[in-house]
Design a protein around this nucleic acid. Structure first.
Lengths: 235, 235
DNA sequence: CGTTGTGTTAACCACGTGTGAAACCTCCGG
DNA sequence: CCGGAGGTTTCACACGTGGTTAACACAACG
């Protein structure tokens, strides 16, 4: 389960797109035409929320869309409206049709915060900070890692090492760099320690995914599938 | 609509007062001093909502106040925060402590709309006044918890800790985080306190449900049975 | 004054972690 | 084609950090 889709109507551009990216959800644009058309369309399966841009559009159309989304789909899916300031009064007595709203000009961080707020309140856990690469998925909040859908039972150091490698894919790190970055700057230990932890990680990744951590002979290790050019990294 | 009192902290002036007047509710000022003082005061009887001005105030104090309002008083009473823009990031992972927020400079009609929105919503579909997870059920109104149908006789701190963990399932919390979120931001005590309370909770959960609180070694604790995958190695 | 709740201290124990040595691989020179 | 050297993988074991547990101290409350 990667990031859940969020329905965007009628389009997803500018601050809205940025806010969705920051939040870590994938936008799904329903249409680029009139709001009315969306209601007749089939919304994406299992979308976690909806952002409806009513600014500059006929207000009743937006409300109709809200009603249809609420009625047809799950009433728990949060709906966020983007409004012009003059549309604020129109919301009265329609409080049940939406969950939150933002008044233009739209601020990226405010919109992102509201998105995260509503998604979390709806019991959605997909907004958690994650690291995704290959078949590997690491949830930074639950300290859980899955490889090809299978849960990996990682120890603390294994998790930290894998997280560092996976957040900097395709880059080669020397053992000394890994020791200082993962174990700590003041750490002083043998370089063999890294080898052993890499070995344990490869074992837990499984036979077919062991190659996700690649050995660069006489240099160090890197994360990521092969045929990727490596950038040496020293700091 | 109603003229129920709305708690204002630390004061009610300028746009806030105007917004409350427009909405048609009567403001009740709790204090004009530091946010900390409010927690020890007795909130007005049957207040329908709270507006907390955190702009320009220490953020932890505002969060502490939210926490106390939520825990000690009715968890369904909507809380609206007034924030400076730079405080937006601090809201992350604290989504359960408030219901809405406004970023300064404060617009009267937007604030009024949000107030009306939350007050209406609180009447109809209240915020989850009940936490259900696994065989655990916690009634936030009556302060009662049952596990697998059996009533648990929890003390105050045990209840608060279990409630916090259960409302954020699967997420790992360090002992320091738990101390600040459950015991209070100003609390300063040994980290082993958490361990002992977890132990007492596990004892009261019973042998077969003790695993609902999981230890993440050298990180902290988390609530929730290990996900439907087979993480249970050997029984 | 007993009772109950809460936090601290220390002993115990388990498991994660680091280390050394040996086996293994890979690249080059002979 | 062979052999050795430098580098890597693998294994087993010992140490120490960190979690559990129980017992105690003390405050709150009746």
């Amino acid at each position: 389960m990667t990031s859940d889709p969020v329905l965007c109507v009628p389009s997803c551009e500018g601050p809205v797109r940025k806010a969705l990216e920051v939040t870590g959800v994938t936008p799904v644009v329903a249409t680029s035409g009139r709001l009315n058309e969306v209601a007749s369309l089939e919304p994406p399966d299992g979308y976690a929320g909806a952002v409806i841009n009513a600014a500059g559009f006929p207000f009743t159309e937006a409300m109709n869309l809200c009603r249809q989304l609420r009625h047809r789909d799950h009433p728990v899916v949060p709906i966020i409206l983007l409004l012009d300031h003059y549309q604020l009064d129109d919301l009265t007595f329609r409080e049940d049709l939406f969950d939150d709203f933002v008044v233009g000009p739209f601020d990226v961080s405010e919109l992102a915060t509201r998105l995260r707020h509503r998604l979390r309140r709806a019991g959605n856990e997909s907004v958690a900070a994650r690291v995704e690469h290959g078949g590997l998925s690491m949830n930074l909040e639950t300290y859980q890692a899955t490889i090809a859908g299978r849960v990996m039972d990682l120890t603390y150091m294994e998790y930290e090492l894998l997280r560092f490698l996976a957040t900097n894919p395709h880059r080669v790190f020397t053992r000394e760099t890994l020791l200082s970055r993962v174990w700590g700057y003041e750490y002083y230990g043998g370089a063999r320690t890294v080898d052993v932890h890499v070995r344990r990680l490869r074992a837990k990744l499984g036979e077919e995914n062991a190659h996700l951590i690649q050995t660069v002979r006489s240099v160090g290790y890197k994360f990521g599938a092969s045929t990727d050019y490596a950038l040496a990294d020293d700091d």
